[in-house]
C-alpha cells in the first residue's frame, strides 16, 4: 500500500530525514518509535502533504501513485488520513460542518452519492457514541476550547467517519490519560483489518499495549536504525532510547 524509498528531507536547509525505507502492506499496523527530534513528526507531515519540508531525495508510492506529487486534499480523498499531534482550532467552523464537508468531499471523489443532512447526522451520532464523545461537541467550533484529550478523541472521530485506507497517527497518545487512551485505541482497533494499514508514530510504548503493532521501527537521526516485532517496543520501554546513542551505527535487522 505504502512504499517509502530512501526518503531524505530537510527543513530550512537542515537535514531531518536521512534515508527512510519502509513498506506497509494492507492489513498491517506499523509503529514508528524514536526519541524527540528523531524525525517522526516530519515523516508523518511529509506523508500527509504538510508545507515547509524539502524532499531532497527518494520517493513515496501510495497505492501505485506518486504520493509526494499529490495535494493534501487529493491524498485525503484517496484514503490517507493524518491524526494530528496538535489538532488545529478553527473558530467559526462547527465540527459537524467540517465532518460533513470532509466526508462528502471524499465520497464525491469516489463517485458515491453525497449524504444528506439526515443520513449524515445518523451516521455521525453512531461514530460519536463509539468514541464516547458527547454530541454537544459536534455543534461546537472545531477543537475550540477542547481539552487535549477531547481534541485527540475528535481526531479519532474523524478517522472513524472517513474510514481511511491508510491512517497515520502522529503521537496520538501524548497528553491522554489512560481512559482516553483506551477509547482512542478502541477507535483505531475498530478500523484494523483487510484493506487498511496504519502507521502509528509514538514516543512511548504505552499506546502499543492497546494498539498492538505487527512491526516496530526505531527512528533515530532521520534513519530507521532497527526494526522488529512488538517485543522491540517492550525492549525500548525497558532500556530507554539510550542504547541508540551508544550504538549509533546500529543497522536495521528486519522483523525478528
Amino acid at each position: 500500500m505504502l512504499t517509502i524509498k530512501n526518503l531524505r528531507a530537510s527543513v530550512d536547509g537542515k537535514a531531518i530525514l536521512n534515508g527512510i525505507d519502509l513498506a506497509l502492506k494492507e492489513g498491517e499496523v506499523h509503529a514508528v518509535m524514536g526519541p524527540n527530534g528523531s524525525g517522526k513528526s516530519t515523516l508523518a507531515g511529509i506523508l500527509a502533504g504538510r508545507d515547509g519540508y524539502e524532499v531532497t531525495a527518494g520517493g513515496v508510492q501510495y497505492r501505485g501513485m506518486d504520493l509526494l506529487e499529490m495535494e493534501p486534499e487529493e491524498r485525503a480523498r484517496e484514503g490517507l488520513f493524518l491524526a494530528f499531534q496538535y489538532p488545529v482550532e478553527i473558530p467559526g467552523v462547527t465540527n459537524l460542518y467540517l465532518l460533513k464537508a470532509s466526508l462528502n468531499a471524499i465520497r464525491k471523489h469516489r463517485g458515491e452519492e453525497e449524504l444528506n443532512a439526515v443520513e449524515f447526522l445518523k451516521l455521525i451520532k453512531e461514530k460519536a457514541a463509539m468514541v464516547e464523545m458527547d454530541e454537544a461537541f459536534l455543534y461546537r467550533p472545531v477543537n475550540e476550547g477542547f481539552s487535549g484529550g477531547e481534541k485527540k478523541r475528535n481526531e479519532i472521530l474523524q478517522m472513524a467517519l472517513l474510514q481511511p485506507a491508510l491512517s497515520i497517527l502522529d503521537e496520538t497518545d501524548s497528553g491522554l490519560d489512560i481512559d482516553a487512551l483506551k477509547v482512542v485505541a478502541g477507535g483505531v482497533n475498530a478500523l484494523r483489518g483487510e484493506g487498511r494499514a496504519m502507521l502509528v508514530v509514538t514516543h512511548y510504548q504505552r499506546l502499543l499495549d492497546y494498539i498492538v503493532p505487527d512491526f516496530v521501527h526505531v527512528l533515530h537521526d532521520g534513519r530507521i536504525v532497527r526494526s522488529g516485532d512488538k517485543s522491540l517496543a517492550l525492549e525500548l520501554e525497558r532500556e530507554g532510547y539510550g542504547w541508540i546513542e551508544r550504538e549509533p551505527e546500529a543497522t536495521s535487522t528486519g522483523a525478528a
Binding site: 502533504g49 504538510r50 480523498r77 488545529v88 478553527i90 468531499a105 471524499i106 472545531v142 472517513l162
Partner: peptide, 13 residues
Amino acid sequence: AALFYLRSRGIGE
C-alpha cells in the same frame, strides 16, 4: 495551519 488541517480532511484549497 488551519488551512492545512481542512485540506488534510479532503476539502479543496
